[in-house]
Write a protein that binds this DNA or RNA. Structure first.
Lengths: 230, 230
DNA sequence: GTCTATAACGAGATAGAC
DNA sequence: GTCTATCTCGTTATAGAC
């Protein structure tokens, strides 16, 4: 009885995975805008209507791919961070996570484009994507929050930014002091500026040693949010 | 005779502009990947083959749109910078240009996506785009180069980055000291990280006062490349 | 209950003959 | 430049296999 259910569930997971794999291949070849349920079905030797047993619509398939991409990136970052010794200095934690993000993005350029590139026309990501999308950010928050527990130095905020800083700190984490919040959110976006320029080819014919430039920039980004310790 | 040519040339410019306008409309509606010469022609009441007298291929139309977008952004940045008094401090020059980039991007999100978003599958930008693409970067280089003429303070570079710094400084501008080059290239990409996150909606439901956060982050970015002067 | 297949819809793109 | 025949697409209704 339970073995029957197990076999069915297993088959379902396998087909779901095959659909997503094929969809990812099309993502790479044609881009998210041209992702087509029919083409996926054709390539898998299924009929298009059969796909609706697994994904209620094309947008749901897209959403699943987006969540998978965010989770894959988040897991890569978390794994790299977790592999560090417990006494690792905050700045080193920070740069390790940054390097993991960069490595994942260079390894998965099309999935990177899906989550941090141009929005897909006509598609709006549902709230379901938020927890996965937040993973890298929360990891950075954790690192900065821990460092400030131990008292890190930060320049004072301009008066006009104070309300936003309070809001951010309250929304994101109680461990994040308001003085650190705007700088951290900015650094978070700037990290992806760095990565995006490399992945999307803006550094072509300009930067040769991109790994070294990234290492330098990520380090300065970490220092900018008050982290220390080579 | 010359009046006939003038009229013809004028007509040609007008049709070319109409084609690009319609193409931009489609860019907004469907995305760059789905830009289709036929659809543009249909919307203009022309037949698709007629378009080929103006743009030899879909990719050429795309290239024209990309160059236009880079030039539009470049001009916005240059105009904002040129409007400043001659004795404006370097840091204020920097933030003014950054604000102009942000304002243009928020005003032209789809053109922003075209030039700084995901690459269009199957399309590679030809070298013709480089001069237009470089305008904002060169403006930032000019500001930082001028400031360093007057002697700005910068942290020393790590030894491993020295070769890349020399290369960058040599390739980009003689006015840019090697110690400033990697930081400037990084800041340039980080500026677009900030802008991209806002334009592409990554700040949704998180940052409320985005203008204020940007002002703050852009200022710190400028300080990071050695600029001073409120 | 769970799945796949057939067939069809309305809309749109595309290729080629004319 | 026009027209048509033939593709694509997402999606649904329905019927039948396991």
């Amino acid at each position: 009885m339970s073995s029957t259910q197990g076999a069915r569930a297993r088959a379902r997971t396998e087909v779901t995975a095959a659909i997503k794999d094929e969809a990812r291949r099309q993502l790479a070849a044609e881009g998210a805008a041209k992702l087509s349920l029919r083409a996926v079905a054709r390539e898998l030797g299924m009929v298009s209507s059969a796909l609706y047993r697994y994904f209620p619509s094309r947008d749901d398939l897209l959403t699943a791919l987006i969540i998978d991409a965010y989770d894959s990136l988040g897991e890569a970052a978390e794994t790299a961070h977790a592999a560090l010794p417990d006494d690792t200095a905050p700045l080193r934690r920070w740069t390790t996570v940054c390097e993991a993000v960069r490595a994942w993005a260079l390894d998965h350029p099309h999935e990177y484009a899906l989550i941090y590139g141009s929005p897909v026309p006509g598609y709006a990501a549902p709230p379901t994507t938020v927890p996965s999308a937040a993973r890298v950010g929360l990891l950075l928050v954790e690192i900065v929050g821990d460092a400030h527990q131990d008292g890190a130095a930060l320049p004072p905020l301009p008066e006009e930014l104070r309300p936003e800083a309070e809001r951010l700190s309250a929304d994101i984490s109680p461990a994040l002091p308001p003085e650190a919040a705007p700088g951290l959110v900015a650094a978070w976006s700037q990290l992806f500026g760095l990565v995006g320029f490399e992945v999307f080819g803006q550094f072509n014919r300009m930067v040769t040693d991109r790994a070294e430039l990234f290492r330098y920039a990520a380090g300065r980004l970490g220092e900018g949010v008050g982290l220390t310790g080579a």
